[in-house]
Amino acid sequence: MAWPEGAVVVVTGAAGGVGHACAAWLAERGAQVFSLDRREPADVVGTFVAVDVLDEASVDAAVAAVVDAAGRVDALVAAAGISEEPTPAEEMSAATWSRTIGVNLTGVFLTCQRVGRVMLGQGAGRIVTIASMSGAHVVNNPQQQVAYNSSKGGLVAMTKSLAFEWASRGVRVNALSPGYVDTPLLGSKHELHDQWKSVTPLRRFAEPAEVAAAAAWLLSDEAAFCCGTEMLMDGGYTLA
């Protein structure tokens, strides 16, 4: 995989799960990684920068810190995301809806917008948003998660819109939509793991490193003709 040595990469949601795996994968291959999250993990990859993706001033400050330190931003992996506890739609609170949409959609937009401004000024950049098979391909079963599904569906549409607007100015934007990934996000739903695996043709969850490798490919030169692409990697879950 062609990956520029020393490329400056920003990863949000880098304290754990897919975000941390992406940061580690890229750093191991020579990228200069800036790990952005609300809290600093014990095993931070690269340089940690605190950010609250729901706060415009916080996002502005985090992006400015990266540019001050590195002089540019070559790539962004927007992996910050949350999932609400399964709740019937008719019982979901407005606060839960707003927070889920806020982090998963508005927060990703603010991050992409601010980093995108830097990339547009450079005339080059690569962005991958971490969406989900739940966004446009499946309504999960049996858990009811209307806010999460809606946020990820919106994220796919947003990714395509940004790709269309920015491609002619040198910035590629694509989405990666995993199925179930073996991360702490699934930890509270152990009773459903066997059911989810049983209807996944590969009979397992994705490893975070597998998702990281796919994200890195979308950022790489090999994916230079991918523009507004949504890469689905679900182990065959949505085939049924």
Rank of each mutant, 00 (worst) to 15 (best):
E84W: 02
E84M: 06
E85N: 04
P86C: 04
T87E: 08
T87R: 07
T87P: 01
P88D: 03
A89C: 12
A89I: 13
E91T: 01
E91K: 12
M92L: 15
S93D: 08
A94F: 13
A94G: 11
A95I: 04
T96P: 02
T96G: 02
T96C: 08
W97Q: 02
W97I: 08
W97K: 09
S98E: 14
R99K: 14
T100L: 08
T100M: 05
I101N: 06
G102H: 11
N104R: 10
L105K: 12
T106Q: 11
T106W: 07
V108F: 07
L110R: 15
L110H: 10
T111L: 14
C112P: 00
C112G: 02
Q113T: 00
R114E: 12
V115N: 10
G116E: 04
G116V: 03
R117S: 10
V118K: 07
V118H: 04
G121A: 14
G121D: 11
Q122C: 04
G123F: 11
A124F: 12
R126G: 03
R126S: 13
I127P: 03
V128A: 07
T129L: 14
I130K: 05
A131G: 11
S132K: 09
S132Q: 12
S132R: 13
M133W: 03
M133Y: 06
M133E: 15
M133D: 08
G135A: 05
G135W: 10
A136R: 15
A136L: 14
H137P: 01
H137Y: 15
V138D: 05
V138A: 09
N141G: 00
N141H: 11
P142F: 04
Q144L: 11
Q144D: 09
Q144H: 07
Q145G: 01
V146S: 15
V146Y: 05
A147N: 02
A147W: 05
Y148Q: 07
N149A: 15
S150T: 15
S150E: 08
S150D: 05
S151L: 11
K152F: 09
K152W: 08
G153R: 13
A157M: 10
M158A: 01
K160I: 01
S161T: 13
S161D: 02
S161K: 03
L162Y: 11
A163E: 02
F164R: 15
E165P: 00
W166F: 08
W166L: 09
A167R: 14
A167N: 05
S168I: 02
R169D: 10
R169E: 14
R169G: 00
G170V: 06
G170E: 01
G170A: 06
V171A: 02
V171I: 01
R172L: 13
V173Y: 00
N174D: 05
N174T: 01
A175T: 02
A175Y: 06
A175G: 07
L176W: 07
S177E: 10
S177P: 06
P178A: 06
G179T: 07
G179L: 12
Y180L: 13
V181D: 04
V181S: 08
